[in-house]
Design a protein around this nucleic acid. Structure first.
Length: 550
RNA sequence: GCCCCCGUAGCUCAACUGGAUAGAGCAUCGGAUUUCUAAUCCGAGGGUUGGGGGUUCGAGUCCCUCCGGGGGCGCCA
């Protein structure tokens, strides 16, 4: 894969630093705060200043002159108060526009920062006890977009769904079905009272499922409908793993024994007295998490009745992820699980999986449902929630996805139901989609007038607004790879809003199709087409459609 | 009591992980189209980045402390 311009420049600068100062520096190239400084800036001189014991401004001007020769064909260099700024030359930008349209197309935005690294992103993983709610919709949007963005950036990324189809909740689900079928008078204590179970109960009865299998069978039906809702939302999983499979595979024993061999397991009663006192079940077997992470306390793996805890099974599951060859494991969890991160990390570290592997948890913060200005407490058991399907019905997939990605995942989100309905007209997604539709229609208009970007004379592109647009197009692959590295999908919609704004501005100020000047029109059409391509590719990354007409 | 997240313009949020004069949208006010989509554009006002201290060439970003909001602290899953 071809390196992006930024990567090429970075390499040249690093080589030059090595050559002149004998230092290995990871050169950071960022867009400067203000446009007037140029297109890329580096703080290199400040970093070198300490090592070389020289003032930054001196290093900057000295290095800049050495560098400017090397970079002459690509960029112009200027130094302002210690910062080394690069202004990309027009021919390079014009060539970029040409390439986006003629050679990159849907590939534009790709990079190889991922280097083919295998990544597994697990998300949503809702309990199979009811329909998905808006929180799951948010997690689905973030997770799915992240996978798309990572793939674009050269990671070999897969999406996985984990199903907790074992344990007490499944029993409760089964008994709730029994209640709906009149096989018991009262719903169970932790029962699921939502009306969606009526339909499911009928189905199970018609299939002749026996009472002890109600829970498992209901869970499978619910899982199926969850995956259908997700697919409707544009989210597909590469794999679905069930807790019951992990339990049946012998993996739990394998991981437990490994931990034991590593000396990380002990009986609760054998712990030092100050730790032991915490454990009710003194015969349970605990993981010495405290030996791995001093802020953690030992955690029960196996109860005295021989039953593994959820943590034990989850640890086995995560062990399995690495076993399958993934080098980077990313989980999206709700905020109620954040206390769980250190113990999982400690467990994986204890197993030696983090020496070469990487484990990250992205906390997708909660969504508060607001109705009539007041917070609604969502409860799946009571059947009170706004489902993902209702959300899609109310605002559509595009508006919902864009809305969720507009803020970073670790920020709380108030989700106003009335706002959701209003969103169908107010959502900024239309601002971005409108650019795509506008350019599409522009192309039609141009072809009616007999003008095409094949007539383009690239030198005609030189307006300030044109340069600004070209620069924005140049940044796209950087934005995508940053978004992947930082696990922050929200950078994409923000970039698209920016780009859209620049285009609308340009369009308003300058006429594009002019039959009297085909060379100029062609050039502007080519630029417009490049913008359309990038908008299209960007929307694709977040699973939002790019309409030709609005 | 301990831990995590958040606090930035009236509101909702950015700020490329320590960079230059903290930016957008909404809302408010004022303007723009006989020509390519007005779901658009241009302009104006609006800030002690919750308070205080520290680290350094440089802090919204890192450290300490206090204040406020949310969440967590099962041998549930």
């Amino acid at each position: 894969m071809q390196k992006t311009l930024k990567e090429r420049i970075k390499q040249i600068i690093e080589r030059k630093v090595k050559e002149i100062y004998g230092q290995d520096v990871d050169v950071q190239l960022t867009p400067p705060r203000s446009e007037e400084y140029g297109d890329y800036a580096t703080n290199l001189a400040f970093l070198l200043s300490k090592k070389l014991r020289k003032p930054p401004s001196e290093i900057a001007s000295e290095f800049a002159s050495a560098l400017s020769e090397e970079l002459r064909p690509i960029a112009e260099i200027n130094v302002v108060s210690g910062f080394i700024n690069l202004q990309i030359r027009m021919p390079i930008l014009r060539e970029l526009v040409y390439e986006i349209v003629h050679s990159h197309q849907s590939d534009y935005g790709e990079s190889d920062v991922g280097g083919g690294r295998r990544v597994l992103v697990e998300f949503v993983s809702a309990n199979p006890t009811g329909p998905l709610n808006v929180v799951s919709a948010r997690a689905a949007t973030v997770g799915d977009s992240l996978v798309r963005i990572m793939r674009k950036s050269g990671y070999n990324a897969d999406a996985e769904y984990y199903v907790n189809d074992a344990g007490g909740q499944i029993r409760a689900l089964g008994e709730s079905v029994a209640w709906r079928l009149g096989e018991r008078d009262e719903p169970p204590q932790d029962g699921y009272l939502g009306e969606y179970l009526i339909e499911i109960a009928k189905k199970l009865r018609d299939q002749g499922v026996s009472r002890e299998d109600y829970g498992k069978a209901a869970a499978e039906l619910i899982l199926k409908s969850q995956l259908q809702s997700l697919e409707r939302f544009g989210v597909k999983f590469d794999s679905v793993v069930r807790e019951s499979e992990i339990r049946a595979s012998g993996l739990v024993d394998e991981v437990f024994n490994r931990l034991k061999e590593l000396g990380l397991v002990s009986k609760a009663s054998d712990l030092p007295p100050q730790l032991a006192s915490e454990y009710r079940d003194r015969n349970s077997l605990v993981l010495r998490t405290d030996l791995i992470d001093k802020n953690e306390k030992p955690r029960v793996l196996i109860r005295s009745n021989g039953e593994p805890t959820y943590f034990m099974v989850d640890l086995a599951y995560h062990y399995n992820k690495f076993q399958r060859g993934y080098e980077w494991v990313i989980d999206l969890w709700g905020p109620d699980h954040h206390g769980y991160i250190p113990r999982m990390r400690a467990g994986l570290k204890g197993l030696g999986l983090l020496e070469n592997g990487r484990f990250d948890v992205m906390i997708v913060q909660q969504v508060n449902l607001i109705r009539d200005g007041k917070r609604v407490v969502m409860s799946k058991r009571k059947g009170e929630f706004f489902t993902m399907d209702q959300l899609i019905d109310a605002v559509g997939v595009d508006a919902a996805r864009f809305f969720f990605l507009l803020r970073s995942a670790n920020a709380h989100l108030d989700f106003d139901i009335d706002l959701a309905r209003k969103l169908s007209s107010d959502n900024p997604v239309y601002y971005v989609q409108y650019v795509h539709a506008r350019i599409s229609s522009l192309m039609e208009h141009a072809s009616e007038k007999g003008v095409s970007f094949d007539d383009a004379e690239l030198e005609q592109l030189g307006l300030k607004e044109e340069r600004t647009l070209m620069k924005k197009l140049l940044y796209f692959p950087d934005v995508v790879s940053n978004s992947a590295r930082r696990m922050e999908p929200h950078l994409i919609p923000h970039y698209l809003l920016d780009l859209a704004g620049e285009f609308h501005n340009y369009y308003q100020k300058h006429r594009i199709v002019d039959t009297e000047n085909k060379a100029l029109s062609g050039a502007r059409l080519l630029l417009a087409e490049a913008v359309r391509t990038v908008v299209h590719n960007g929307l694709e990354l977040i699973g939002v459609s790019a309409p030709s007409r609005m």
